[in-house]
Simulated scan of single mutants.
Amino acid sequence: MSAPNSEYDPVEVTPLRADEVTRMRDEALAAIAGADSIDAIKQVRIDHAGDRSPLALANREIGALQPQARKEAGQRVGEARGAINQALAAKTTELETAAEEIALVTEAVDVTLPADARPVGARHPITTIQEHVADIFVAMGWEVGEGPEVEAEWLNFDALNLGPDHPARTMQDTFWVSPESAAMVLRTHTSPVQARTMLTREPPIYIVCPGRVFRTDELDATHSPVFHQLEGLAIDEGLSMAHLKGTLDHLAQAIYGDGMTTRFRPSYFPFTEPSAEMDLLCYVCHNEPDAVAACRTCKGEGWVEWGGCGVVNPRVLIACGVDPERYSGFAFGIGLDRTITSRYDIADLRDVFDGDIRFTEPFGVEL
């Protein structure tokens, strides 16, 4: 085995010569000074400070020198590499600062410019008034009841004293669900929710039932096969028509303002006895002598039809498992679509259901 070459001249290792190390350092510093972007300085770092840079390769040659020569060569290369790294750090900071300043100018947001042109959303007035009326009753201690829109025939008719021969059961009034043996219908009112409640709970019961209902009406300016109702039911000891009148007057004032009231006209409904048609004091002319004759809303009547009501028929109480000797109650129903169209003078009911955003925009997010 040959012995180490003790006569090796370090000067013969060209990359380690002082002039060559100085040249590589100066070349790197010049490249750093000429970099004008973040990407450019990244490339300079790879070319002059990376693992394959000239000084990194020269550093590998130090191991070939005699021990006494390694210190001087290592110091020379180390100083050159240190100068390059310091210059790279300074230049990188300078370029990053400049890039941030440019971004602050070019990417600035002018808060005085007009807002986004996208339209602001609006809630449908039917949804809003449905929730508003429900909130009125919740504030009085009532509850909100819900039920399915596809309902059993017995709950939709029989439990409410609508017998097998009642005209409401015909195909001209009710949507029946196939097959006929299923005895299922699209509910024609929200009263089945009241029946379900009486069957599953003990009185006292105070609930309102808002929801969508279905009847075989032609779609025109004043009718729709799909519309919305809000019905109320109160079952307790000693309830009478007087309690019903007070409840409806409170509802009228909560929706239309102080001074509003209702009146009853005798009528007939199978599920209430006695029954009444409910009229609302005209909210435009307030039945004042000087204004009522010319009022287009009530057409000179001073009152606007609002819904139906009455004392719950004892047969309905018995069918739903409630003792009519102990309990009595009242029920009422109002059309939410009619409330909207009359309150806001909407001439065509179809506008309520067309889904045109131009109709809902004026209502915003509140009633």
Rank of each mutant, 00 (worst) to 15 (best):
S2P: 11
S2H: 11
S2W: 09
A3Q: 10
E12V: 04
V13C: 05
V13I: 14
T14G: 02
R17S: 01
A18P: 03
V21C: 07
V21W: 09
T22Q: 12
R23Q: 13
D26K: 13
L29H: 10
L29E: 08
G34M: 08
G34S: 15
D36Y: 02
S37H: 13
A40E: 10
Q43G: 00
R45I: 04
D47L: 15
H48Y: 14
A49T: 09
S53V: 13
P54T: 07
A56K: 12
L57D: 06
N59K: 15
P67R: 13
K71C: 00
E72A: 11
Q75P: 04
R76F: 07
G78L: 11
E79M: 14
A83D: 15
A87T: 06
T92V: 01
L95N: 07
T97G: 15
A99H: 11
A99R: 15
A103D: 14
L104Q: 11
A108M: 06
V111E: 14
A117D: 08
R123H: 15
P125R: 08
T127R: 15
Q130W: 07
Q130A: 08
I136G: 00
V138K: 13
G141K: 10
W142D: 00
G147H: 02
A152P: 01
E153H: 09
E153D: 14
F157I: 01
L160R: 00
D165S: 11
R169L: 12
M171N: 06
Q172C: 12
F175C: 00
S178T: 14
A183R: 14
H189F: 10
S191L: 05
S191C: 05
V193Q: 09
Q194K: 07
R196C: 01
T197E: 15
M198C: 08
L199M: 15
T200K: 08
R201T: 04
E202I: 07
V208S: 01
C209E: 05
R212C: 02
F214V: 00
T216K: 03
L219D: 10
D220C: 01
S224M: 09
P225G: 01
H228E: 08
H228L: 10
L230V: 07
E231F: 08
L233T: 00
I235K: 02
S240Q: 02
M241T: 08
K245I: 12
D249L: 09
A252N: 04
A254Y: 06
D258I: 08
G259F: 04
T262M: 13
S275G: 12
L280V: 09
L281C: 07
V284L: 06
C285A: 03
H286E: 03
A291Y: 11
A293N: 09
A294T: 14
A294Q: 13
C295M: 06
C298I: 02
K299W: 10
K299D: 10
K299Y: 11
E301V: 12
G302I: 06
W303D: 00
E305L: 05
G307N: 09
G308L: 12
C309H: 05
G310L: 08
V312N: 02
N313K: 04
V316G: 01
A319D: 04
E325V: 07
G333D: 02
R338C: 02
I340F: 05
A347Q: 13
A347E: 15
A347S: 11
L349C: 03
D351H: 10
D351W: 13
D354L: 01
D356N: 14
R358I: 00
E361N: 12
V365K: 14
V365L: 15
L367A: 12
